[in-house]
């Protein structure tokens, strides 16, 4: 328990919150990295998944890409990118790695959601004379929304985790507090950093949970989620 009080003391010290290595700066970096990369990943993955799902093509790719993403260690990709010419670009390797690992869950969930839309509903829409584009935007995408959102949620949590590991490869973010703690052999700092990261990740998860609960009934996941 002694370590916990030490970690608390570390967090309570205002000197640790200010400056370039301070908690506020690292927290902002982490938040910006997560949000920016989530937006980029959505812009890449969602259009592809919606169109593939609408056309019913490329299913094997959309589903298997998640399995591939799981087998490749994030740490390995971060280091590999760091050693390429991209490594000279500051946060470049981190952003690319984060996007690479956020795309698979987005793609898979959105595709599965689009394919999961009741075929008779789609046929009814076609019978009413809707064009492909109208069916996509007014029928399929809204009905697939719960699964699309759960993909965004998984991607966001994945981004927070990967951004933490990025600190091992010299990237910014809250993980730097942990790696700095290891370098200083300061267990209180390591634990304090880990608590910050864990709370941050749980808050992100909590935000999505809240959004899901506040959403209107039709946009919520049904029992089988």
């Amino acid at each position: 328990m002694n370590t916990l009080t030490d970690a608390w003391d570390w967090l309570a010290d205002s000197a640790h919150w200010a400056g370039d290595d301070g908690i506020w700066h690292r927290l902002t970096q982490h938040l910006v990295l997560t949000v920016v990369c989530l937006l980029i990943s959505c812009l890449i993955a969602l259009p592809v998944a919606l169109v593939l799902g609408h056309l019913g093509k490329g299913g094997a790719l959309a589903v298997n890409i998640s399995n591939v993403g799981r087998a490749v260690p994030t740490f390995a990709v971060l280091v590999l990118l760091l050693l390429t010419p991209l490594g000279k670009w500051g946060e470049g390797p981190t952003v690319v790695a984060l996007v690479l690992f956020a795309v698979p869950p987005l793609l898979t969930n959105a595709y599965v959601g689009m394919r999961g839309v009741d075929r008779s509903v789609v046929q009814a829409a076609r019978g009413m004379g809707m064009t492909g584009r109208q069916m996509l935007w007014r029928v399929e995408a809204p009905l697939a929304l719960p699964l699309i959102m759960s993909g965004v949620r998984i991607a966001a949590v994945q981004l927070v985790a990967t951004a933490t590991i990025a600190a091992l490869a010299g990237g910014g973010g809250l993980g730097r507090i942990i790696t700095a703690g290891f370098n200083l052999a300061s267990t209180p700092q390591v634990v304090a950093g880990a608590v910050l990261v864990a709370v941050f990740a749980l808050l992100v998860e909590g935000v999505f949970e809240a959004v899901e609960r506040l959403a209107p009934g039709w946009a919520r996941k049904t029992g089988k989620g």
Partner: peptide, 11 residues
Amino acid sequence: YTIPSLAMFSL
């Protein structure tokens, strides 16, 4: 599962 791996090892 939500806690990132680096934080889990550190905790």
